[in-house]
């Protein structure tokens, strides 16, 4: 009897629950391994590096220092030892935030009507339109950026056409300005705005739009009171998807800003490259991460509050 009980124990409810929990964790294991090796691990390295002293030829020396964090916002004059704000860094921070915000807004202004247009096409045509949106997205980022460059440079398509038609006598300087960076980033990140808005627009019941017109709402009122509140989750997702990568953008400002319109990504690259100040680069990278997180918290809070207000 006791032998049988040992070889074939009926699992108690607690045992079963424990086993279920264990098997669920097992399913999570691959993701956990990758996340800890590929995300948390490197992030920890960056955090550690940001508290060390730069090596003479790049890399770090294992000596604790708060200088990197100090240097993110301030600098000591080389000769007079006088303290002052790191204007160059702050300017880059400001420009990154400003350009990212403007890109997100521009993408929204262009992307919202586009998503609406596609969502109101007959169902069998929508896929084709979405494909047209996605093709540039699948094209190499550098190629797309150079294509924009070709359009707006002084001897480029736009200036040549304008000069040939006699509208202007001298080429307009568009390349290597904040404008060119803005145009480039808007073009590159537009699909990331259109996709989520289209996704929520497609689920929108267009009977509601008709009901709006039926109840004496004008087109603008229908847009503001009915369509916009219902696709807001898509707008929120799209804005985040555009804003966050813009903050850390590297290729577009590098190519279209020509080293003059540095953004955070370029500044960080500079520290790890030419300037050989890895700890400062690490501190800047972490600051960028913090800015993104703070911005997200504010944004989500603001949206949430507005949602409650509407309810």
């Amino acid at each position: 009897m006791s032998d049988m009980a040992l070889s074939d124990p009926a699992p108690s409810p607690e045992t079963r629950a424990r086993r279920e929990r264990r098997s669920r964790w097992l399913l999570l294991t691959p993701a956990l391994v990758i996340l800890s090796l590929a995300a948390s691990g490197p992030l920890l390295v960056v955090v550690i590096y940001s508290f060390l002293t730069p090596g003479d030829y790049g890399g770090v020396e294992w000596q604790f220092s708060l200088d990197p964090w100090f240097n993110v916002v301030a600098e000591r004059d080389f000769f007079t030892e006088e303290l002052k704000l790191a204007d160059a860094h702050l300017l880059v921070f400001w420009r990154s935030i400003k350009l990212s915000l403007m890109t997100a807004i521009l993408c929204l202004i262009v992307g919202f009507p586009t998503a609406y247009f596609i969502a109101t096409r007959p169902a069998h045509r929508r896929d084709m339109w979405m494909l047209l949106i996605m093709i540039p997205f699948w094209t190499n980022l550098l190629i797309r950026t150079f294509a924009i460059m070709e359009l707006i440079r002084n001897q480029g398509t736009i200036n040549t056409l304008l000069m040939a038609s006699g509208v202007i006598d001298e080429p307009i300087q568009m390349l290597y300005t904040e404008f060119s960076v803005l145009v480039g980033m808007t073009y590159v990140y537009l699909p990331l705005m259109i996709l989520p808005i289209y996704a929520s627009m497609e689920r929108l019941d267009f009977n509601l739009v008709e009901a709006g017109y039926d109840l004496y709402a004008t087109r603008l009122q229908v847009l503001r009171r009915i369509i916009f509140p219902l696709v807001k989750p898509g707008v929120v997702a799209g804005s985040i998807l555009v804003f966050v990568p813009c903050l850390g953008a590297y290729v577009t400002p590098r190519v279209l800003g020509g080293g003059k319109q540095l953004m955070l990504g370029n500044l960080i690259e500079l520290q790890f490259g030419q300037l050989r100040n890895w700890p400062l680069g690490a501190a800047l990278a972490l600051t960028l991460l913090a800015v993104v997180m703070v911005a997200l918290v504010f944004y989500v809070r603001a949206i949430g509050r507005e949602g409650e207000h509407n309810a």
Binding site: N207, E210, A211, I226, L230, A311
Partner: peptide, 9 residues
């Protein structure tokens, strides 16, 4: 409307 089309928000 047949589907009522009430505004869900």
């Amino acid at each position: 409307f047949q589907s009522y089309a009430l505004f869900p928000h």
